[in-house]
Design a protein around this nucleic acid. Sequence first.
DNA 1: GGCTAATTCATACGTTTGTTTGAATCAAAC
DNA 2: GTTTGATTCAAACAAACGTATGAATTAGCC
Lengths: 230, 230
Amino acid sequence: MIPPLAFFPTESHAATRVALLDAAERLFSKNGIEGTSIRDIVKEAGTNLGAINYHFGTKDRLALEVFARRLEPVNRERIARLDALEAATGPGKLTLEQILDALIRPVLEFDEDGTKNCDDFMRLISRCFQEPNPEVKRFVEQQFAEVVHRFDSAVLRVMPELPAGDLFWRMTFLHGALHHGLQTWLRFDQVPYAMLNPAAEKPDREGLIRRLIAFTAAGISAGKTSASSQ
Amino acid sequence: MIPPLAFFPTESHAATRVALLDAAERLFSKNGIEGTSIRDIVKEAGTNLGAINYHFGTKDRLALEVFARRLEPVNRERIARLDALEAATGPGKLTLEQILDALIRPVLEFDEDGTKNCDDFMRLISRCFQEPNPEVKRFVEQQFAEVVHRFDSAVLRVMPELPAGDLFWRMTFLHGALHHGLQTWLRFDQVPYAMLNPAAEKPDREGLIRRLIAFTAAGISAGKTSASSQ
DNA sequence: GGCTAATTCATACGTTTGTTTGAATCAAAC
DNA sequence: GTTTGATTCAAACAAACGTATGAATTAGCC
């Protein structure tokens, strides 16, 4: 019998389905997609091998849904915050820090609505750009393209003197800093060069956001005679 | 017969050995370690399955040597350049940009002595922090710890007013920007949001280095009243 | 040429992989 | 209480996996 595969997250019509997604998310974030077998997943989810075939068909589609389930809400939230910002203050009146806050904060805060397992997915986010799985990669990059386009425009409006070619690379560096910083923050207690460094401290979530914004805002406005704020 | 496994790169006593390393490097960078089978590797290297057992024993040790072969020279070069810099000008007289140049340039330039396949390994570098293989991970982080320690001290000397806790995170962001930027630069022609953005251009190697240094130097000296140079 | 050690090769072993199947179980409707 | 459709389960499939083995082949030295 052909599994009833609605293309994307229809509804969590079965608890088994979300248990599988959670288990896969946790194991993928630890061992990667290729490094996780569907037997590991069903064992962690406390169910059976056939459940994967029934709910997702193949491992590849399961992987795709693992990413889609989290990535879509995060990116929707990013754009929604930017919209709200531009609606509240005039589009030209924004500060760079406000824009970066809308871009960065949803990635670290998207468990506010009660979503659990957010740590596991945050680990996944920083990994998703190097995922070799072609379906997953295409989805991630397509999602990403939309966010980049919106935020590029917003930054350009508050920094009209910045060449667009420069902006592309600075936004690329920003995302690298964001993902690697997030990864290091989440695994702080297991990162040897963090443990060995007595001066290194793990800030709370808000502290990390503040540091990220300070660093990337300065990087994006590099070359200007003075930092954009403070 | 037990394979003659000297612990680390003894000498490339056999052409087959380096052919295997090259092939593994290329395939690992494309598909990850778990996503690459040793059968793929020996096929790419034009040799036989037994060759891996003979030269490396196991796949895990092959993976370790793939990383060690390139990472050690790169990190040696980074520290050597910093040493040379501090020897030439007094340790206190350095600029932040000079220090970052010593940190960033060797990653992008380490094929000067004729090492080929450098592109493949550059792709690997940006991936090595999320490698689940425990032996590889331990090696990478240990290598990294030494570099971080040396460069943290150097930066602190030119920016004595920067709290050491801030420095740790800013250097973390720097490495994220470096690796993700490198990854994007190498795959520029395949990155959809780069192709779709008419303003995005792929600079030459020197241009990428210049942009990276400008961005990270500004980020590290964020909060100061004026940018450190230019 | 003949001996020795190093290297390559074809082949096989036991596991684990993703996927499939068909029967068992469950929930709700009639 | 029986029927129906959805869901779970144990079992099995072929294929691919990492590893091991022993015979061929090669290269260097006497």
